[in-house]
Design a protein around this nucleic acid. Structure first.
Lengths: 335, 335
DNA sequence: TTGTAGGCGTTATCAT
DNA sequence: ATGATAACGCCTACAA
C-alpha cells in the first residue's frame, strides 16, 4: 500500500497481485487475453487496495474521454430539467459522463465550446436555443470539438448534427388540430428570434395556417423562454382589448411560454382558458399535466432521441437527416 | 502545423514561435517568469495555430482537475434547476467545470461517487436528499473523493461539509409566522424519510410548534419531492373529510410539495387556498411567485451559498459549521 | 498469455 | 529568463 489516500495505481496492485502492471490494466479490459486466474488475482488485490483505474490517464492515452458537454442557456424552462434528467441517465448507461455548461450569460456559445474542447469532450450537445449558426461554425472550425450536436432543435448548420422532432410534421399536426377544433383567429407566441429562423416552428405554423385558413396569423416574440416574460408580454399586449380584438387561441412555441400565457389570460385579462382564449404548447413538461394547466401540447420522444444521441456518439449513426423523430400530440383541456 | 485537426500541442507552438516547449506553457501561467516579448511571440503563434492548453494533461500532471461533480437525485423539483444554474455559473466564474451526475435510479450515491472519483473530481457536491450518511461515509473512506459537500441540506456526517440554511432558524421563523397568522391546526408535509432524520426541517417544526401551541402536529411523508406525489397523497388523505377534520394549514418541506398541495386542495378537495387550507413552502422557486400559487415560502441565499462552496473548494474555508446561512421568509397569499 | 517500449500533453524541479 | 529531465497513470503495439 502506498502512503496517502487515493494514490493507488496499477503498479501497487501489480505488486500485491504478483503480476506486472500491464496485466493489471488488462484485467479491466473486456476482451483482453488474460487468464481467469490472473484476472481474479488482480481483482482481489485491487479490491483490498481500493484501486480504480484513472479515467484521466486513460483519456489522455486513448484520446477518448467519454465525456459529453451539455450546453444549456435557459434555466427558466422546466423542460430543460426533463431533458437533463433523460440525457444524463441514458448517457451514463452507455458509459458517458456529462459536463453541464451554463451558457446563459454568454453572448454566444463559442467560449463555452472552447472550454469544453480543452477538456477534450467527445461531443458538445446544445440544448439551448439562443445560439447563432455562425459562431457555432466558427467555433467548430477553429477548435477541436469532435462533434457538435443540436438536441431538440433543428439546425441549419451542415457541420452540426441535429437530433430533434420534425418541426414540420409536429406543427402541421398541431395546426390541423387547432383548426379542426374550430379556432380561427390564432396568434403565435414565439421565443427569441435568432438569426437562423428557417425551419422553425413559427414558420411552419404561420405558413401552414395560411395555407389552411387563407390568412397569415400574427406572432409575438418573447425575449426568452421564460413563463414570466410570456406572462408580461401577453398581459401588456392584450389588456384592455375588446373581445373581438382578441385571438381565440395562442399557439405557443413551447410549454414554458404557454404556461405564462395561461396565467396571464386568467389573472391579468380575467378570461377563461379555453373558453375565451385557448392555448397550446410544445414539450409536454410535467406541469402541463397539472389540473391547473391541462395543456394541449406535443410530446417529443426524448428517450429515443437520447438513444439516437448515443448512436451518434458511438459513430453508429452517420446520415445526418435520419435523426428526425415523430412525437405525438397530447390533447388536454387548454385547447 | 501538424497533420490532423485538433492535435496542436505546445511543441507545435514552440517551433513556430522559436522557443522551447516550456516557454510556451509558461506563457499561459499567470505569475511565471517570462519576458513580455516571449509571451507575445508564443501567444501569436498559438493564435495562428489555434492552440489551447490541454486540461486533461494539465490535470494529470497537477493532480487538480478543477472539476466538481454535482450529484442530483431528484429532477421533479424545479428548485434543482435553480440550484444548478446558480452553481454552474458561479463555479465557472471561479474556473471550475461541473459534472452533472444523475443518481435518481441508484440505491445510494456511492456508485456515482466512485465514478466521479475516477475522474478525479476536486469535490463531489450533493444536491440530492435520498442519500444515507452511512453509505456516504463508506464511499468517502474507501474512494478518493477529496471533498464531499452536502449543499442546501444539513448533514450529520462529520466527514462531510454542509453548506445550507440554518434549518432551526428558518423553520422557527416559519413556525412563528404561521402561528401568529392565526393557524392552529397544521399538518407538516414531509419528503422522503431518510435515516438521518435529526436536524431536519420536520423535526424543528414539530417541536417548535409543540413548544408554541402545546400540541405536536401530525405529519405526512411523501415518497419523493414530486408535486404529483404530494398531490395524490393529499387528495387521498383528505378527500371526503369534514371541514372540522381538516388542517387549516399545510406546512410543506419545500415548494415542490407545496405546489402539489395547493393543486390538490383546489382541484381535488374543491377548497380555497388560503381560505380553507393555507399552505407554506420552502425554497422560493420561480413558480412560487406566479399568481396561481402566490406561495408563502422561505428563500435561501443561493448565491452566497455558492460562493461559500467556492471558498471550501479553494481551501479558504475550514471550520465546518460556519457554512450555515440565514435566508428570509417570503410572505405571499397562500398563508 | 504475459512482459516491454514508447507515447499521450502537461507540469515540477533543477540546471543554465 | 529559458532549457532540460522526470513524472503523472494509462494504452497501443510489439516482442517473448
Amino acid at each position: 500500500m502506498k502512503d496517502q489516500d487515493g494514490s493507488i495505481t496499477a503498479d501497487d496492485v501489480a505488486v500485491l497481485a504478483g503480476v506486472s502492471r500491464w496485466t493489471v490494466n488488462r484485467a479491466y479490459k473486456k476482451e483482453a487475453s488474460i487468464s481467469v486466474k490472473s484476472r481474479e488475482k488482480v481483482m482481489k488485490a485491487a479490491e483490498t487496495l481500493g484501486y480504480v483505474p484513472d479515467l484521466l490517464a486513460t483519456s489522455l492515452a486513448t484520446d477518448r474521454t467519454n465525456l459529453v458537454a451539455l450546453l444549456v442557456d435557459d434555466f427558466a424552462n422546466p423542460h430543460k430539467l426533463v431533458m437533463m434528467e433523460r440525457l444524463t441517465r441514458i448517457l451514463r448507461k452507455s458509459g458517458y459522463d456529462t459536463l453541464l455548461v451554463n451558457t446563459s450569460d454568454e453572448e454566444d456559445a463559442s467560449a463555452a465550446l472552447l472550454n469544453a474542447s480543452q477538456r477534450r469532450v467527445d461531443a458538445a450537445v446544445l440544448i439551448g436555443v439562443s445560439f447563432n449558426d455562425q459562431s457555432l461554425e466558427a467555433a467548430l472550425g477553429a477548435k477541436r470539438v469532435k462533434k457538435l450536436i443540436v438536441f431538440a432543435r433543428m439546425s441549419g448548420n451542415d457541420n452540426t448534427i441535429s437530433i430533434c422532432c420534425d418541426d414540420s410534421a409536429s406543427m402541421t399536426a398541431l395546426t390541423q388540430y387547432v383548426f379542426s377544433a374550430g379556432y380561427r383567429n390564432p396568434v403565435f407566441i414565439a421565443g427569441p428570434q435568432t438569426q437562423s429562423a428557417h425551419l422553425q416552428r413559427k414558420e411552419v405554423f404561420l405558413s401552414q395556417w395560411e395555407r389552411t385558413a387563407g390568412k397569415r396569423p400574427d406572432f409575438l416574440p418573447v425575449g426568452s423562454y421564460d413563463p414570466k416574460m410570456a406572462y408580461d408580454l401577453i398581459a401588456k399586449t392584450f389588456r384592455g382589448l375588446a373581445k373581438s380584438e382578441l385571438p381565440d387561441v395562442l399557439v405557443c412555441e413551447n410549454d414554458a411560454l404557454a404556461m405564462g400565457a395561461i396565467d396571464a389570460i386568467r389573472y391579468e385579462l380575467g378570461l377563461q382558458v379555453p373558453g375565451d382564449i385557448a392555448v397550446t404548447g410544445f414539450d409536454d413538461v410535467p406541469q402541463a399535466a397539472s389540473p391547473h394547466y391541462e395543456l394541449t401540447t406535443y410530446r417529443q420522444p426524448l428517450t429515443d432521441m437520447a438513444k439516437a444521441l448515443v448512436d451518434v456518439l458511438e459513430g453508429k449513426s452517420n446520415s445526418k437527416d435520419l435523426n428526425t423523430f415523430l412525437g405525438r400530440l397530447v390533447t388536454r383541456e387548454s385547447a
